[in-house]
Design a protein around this nucleic acid. Structure first.
Lengths: 348, 348
DNA sequence: CTGAAAGCGCTTACAG
DNA sequence: CTGAAAGCGCTTACAG
């Protein structure tokens, strides 16, 4: 039916081995030989059968990306960055959207696609230190994205949660805000990022010589617009006074912003607001939202390269952790014009 | 190294064939036999090697989804719907984001993942009637999404572009608007959807006894917020008078809405606006955007099932076309409350 | 119901 | 540089 390497061998007049050498870019080949094989490949329209290659080599050239869903802008943008990075290295990405919640995250580790992929990039919100053994029991090479505390047992990529949150809060304080809300989500399970961002917020408050006021820390029940809107509605009802908001992610910020505007408050004049994530849409909101840019491209690159290292190095290799940098994007919502204040860190 | 079907056979005491029968749910098996094989599978932690299965069966259980990118909300939501539908049928989805433009779309047809997937769902913006031969030359089973005119040569799923656009425009006219803009994108290449939506707009205008006014048809140079904002800015500069806008998609609408609001116009009091796509975020914009809901779940289901039919039926099968229905979601931007006016069509 | 055997298309020692 | 041959793990006629 379809053209195989055997057909190419027959047409070109060389052995299967030689054809294979040409396909795989083996260096020591007479140019003439290479040319004739390539002509035959072209003529026949030969394409290697990947299943056969994978069966033989034990590699599929596909990596998995496990995320809660694809419709959340944050994960869509992350997935896009991972796919671009992977494509540049000749890898395809199989996305597995698993829904949110701890149960789904655990189930995904035993997921059906496990045997199709050479390794997995796993974006976890709910796994904690206690799950390290579980993760180590997975025989697929694995890189974890996100701030779960695994202390050196699993490869992971983390972002500058604390430093980014501190920079965002400092920016609000530098603009003269004195009562800055921390709009913080927690989703039932422990979300380590939230704690780290809260720590950064607190550092900035205290470094400015202000008192950390628990009344200004407001929990939302989801990381989405709905959660931000609901929390802000409640704050306004409760009559809490504030002149700045650091939201732990952009969608919380956008939800809160809408409620603030409906209540007649002007942004940034009455309330300045900064988010976290640098979603594409923050550039187009009204007003454009200031935010912490976690550099998704850097995260994606670090994840893919760490995974490749693990795939090649095997389980013996020591686990590494890479923390990516950030920058603060100052836009209208915090009174900035469109200039960009950058402050990046990089740690290994 | 890893556990194979041979190990399961050895441990269970049955032949490889019997183990295979159990794995593939072959019906005529003594329950006791099945049980003992399943125990062995469990005990050994056996998982079938998909590469081997695929090599043998010629199927991979993976379908491709070719889209321009994943960060555009429309495609992210489409991809999510396709993945959910596919997962329900035991299929994995390999997304290939190819960038926009005709060149990229053509290149994707020869893409590197072609031999990894059983078939491809291909969301095209730029392919036209002249490309039918090209599409037919692709030996992978293929379902095209979008309104490219292929008249029965390729399986395709189309949406109710004209009917949806007409319903949106009629809704604006019914609310008393008399000068309704058509905010229409065209991206260099021919985008058939835009023509069809324009036709629906025109039908509604003329059915209402109004004259079709070319001055009210405004082209944007992209389907994104930026395009909607730029077009609206130009319209306002030119002093074109209007009291309603039917935008050909939601992001155009959101971009236009921002510019209208900055100019001091109230929505919907001064200008009522309706979009197309029912993106998740339209529920959260300020004001919430009325829009045509193209029922992405229906599109995804039709696409996956048509592809499966093609994969099983082979190239001989006659090509089919399915047009999915729509509903009109009336929200604040067109003066509605939150009720829902539904009008659906379905054709084969 | 079950077993022994061929073969899917490739890569890779092993010989030359 | 090149060829003949084994084998990756599975499914499936073909026999029993």
């Amino acid at each position: 039916m379809s053209v195989t390497i055997r057909d190419v061998a027959r047409v070109s007049g060389f052995s299967i081995k030689t054809v294979s050498n040409v396909i795989n870019g083996h260096p020591q080949l007479r140019p003439e030989t290479r040319q004739r094989v390539e002509d035959a490949i072209e003529e026949l329209g030969y394409r290697p059968n990947l299943s056969a290659r994978n069966l033989r080599s034990g590699r599929s050239g596909v990596i998995g990306l496990i995320i809660p869903d694809l419709t959340t802008a944050y994960f869509a943008e992350l997935a896009d960055a991972v796919m671009r990075t992977a494509a540049a290295r000749g890898l395809a990405v199989l996305i597995e959207p698993i829904g949110s919640g701890r149960e789904n995250e655990l189930a995904a580790l035993r997921g059906q696609h496990r045997h199709m992929v050479d390794g997995v990039i796993y974006s976890s919100l709910t796994l904690g230190a206690g799950d390290a053994d579980l993760l180590k029991s997975v025989d697929t090479p694995l890189v974890v994205l996100g701030d779960t505390s695994f202390d050196g047992q699993v490869d992971r990529i983390t972002m500058a949660n604390t430093a980014g949150a501190r920079a965002a809060t400092e920016h609000l304080l530098a603009a003269g805000r004195r009562r800055v809300l921390a709009l913080a989500a927690h989703e039932g399970d422990i979300v380590a990022s939230a704690e780290l961002r809260l720590a950064g917020y607190r550092e900035a408050i205290e470094a400015a010589g202000l008192a950390f006021d628990p009344q200004l820390v407001c929990y939302a029940d989801s990381w989405h617009r709905r959660g931000g809107a609901a929390s802000m509605t409640k704050l306004l009802e409760d009559g809490v006074a504030f002149d700045g908001v650091f939201a732990f992610n952009d969608t919380l910020a956008l939800g809160a912003m809408r409620v603030l505007q409906e209540s007649g408050r002007r942004i940034p004049q009455d309330v300045a607001i900064v988010g976290f994530d640098d979603l594409d849409e923050t550039r187009y909101s009204l007003p454009a939202l200031s935010t912490v840019n976690p550099r998704r491209d850097d995260i994606a690159t670090a994840a893919v390269e760490t995974l490749l290292r693990r795939i090649e190095g095997g389980p013996e290799l020591e686990a590494i952790e890479i923390e990516t940098g950030f920058s603060l994007e100052i836009r209208e919502s915090s009174g900035g014009s469109d200039q960009k204040a950058t402050s990046a860190t990089n740690a290994a």
